Simulated scan of single mutants.
Amino acid sequence: MSRRLQGYLLLSLAMMTVGTTVIASKLLAGAVPPFLATAARFALALPVLLLLLARSPVPWPRLGWRDRGLLVLQAAAGSVGYTVLLVSGLEHLPAADAGVIVGTLPAVSALFSVMVLKERPGLRLLASALLATVGVMAVAWQAPGQSSWVGVLYVLGAVFCESAFILLNKRMAQPLGALQQATAMVALGLLVSLPVALFELPVAMPSTVALAALAWYALVPTVGGFLLWYAGAARVSGSEAATLTAVAPLTAVALAAALLGDEVGLAQWLGAGAVVLAILILALPARLSGARWRLGRAGG
Rank of each mutant, 00 (worst) to 15 (best):
R171K: 15
L153S: 04
A258T: 06
Y8P: 02
A210P: 12
A98P: 00
L117Q: 11
H92N: 07
L13A: 08
S148A: 07
A233G: 02
L156Q: 14
A254H: 10
T21N: 04
R235V: 01
T243I: 15
L93Y: 13
G89F: 04
P221C: 00
E200P: 07
L295A: 05
L179G: 01
T251W: 13
W149P: 03
A178K: 10
L52D: 09
L49D: 10
V253N: 05
A98I: 00
A252W: 11
L270R: 11
M205I: 06
R4D: 02
E240F: 06
L190T: 09
F42D: 11
S109L: 09
F226T: 00
T245K: 08
V84Q: 00
A218D: 00
A184P: 00
L10C: 08
G145Q: 15
V186I: 03
R294Q: 14
A14Y: 12
L190R: 13
A283T: 01
P61T: 06
W229K: 11
A291T: 05
E200F: 08
A241T: 05
V220E: 03
G238A: 00
A248H: 08
A140C: 04
L284V: 06
A213I: 05
L117P: 09
Q146T: 10
A272C: 13
S163I: 07
I166M: 09
A140M: 09
L179R: 13
V247I: 04
G145M: 10
V264T: 11
G69N: 13
V247E: 03
T17H: 09
A110V: 07
V114I: 14
A252S: 15
K26G: 04
V155M: 09
G78I: 06
V236S: 01
G265M: 12
V116N: 06
G273I: 05
R41T: 07
V220L: 15
G265K: 11
L198Q: 10
L93W: 03
L153M: 10
G157Y: 12
A29W: 09
L36A: 06
L90I: 00
W141Y: 14
G232L: 05
L125C: 03
E263L: 12
Q146C: 05
L85C: 07
L28M: 14
E263T: 13
G145Y: 07
L5D: 00
G64L: 08
L5W: 13
R41A: 11
A178N: 04
A77G: 02
L214H: 14
T133A: 09
V72E: 09
L259F: 13
L153Q: 03
K170Y: 15
L266T: 14
V264W: 13
G69F: 07
T222A: 03
V150M: 10
S25M: 00
G103P: 10
T251Q: 05
L156E: 12
L191E: 02
L219Y: 09
A40K: 01
W149S: 12
V72W: 15
S239T: 06
A233H: 06
L277R: 06
A96E: 08
L219I: 05
L228N: 02
V134K: 11
P175A: 12
L190C: 11
Y8S: 01
F199A: 13
L266A: 15
V114A: 03
L85D: 01
G232F: 02
K170P: 00
Q74W: 08
V150K: 10
R120Q: 12
V72H: 12
G89H: 11
V209Q: 15
A14C: 06
V58Y: 12
R120S: 08
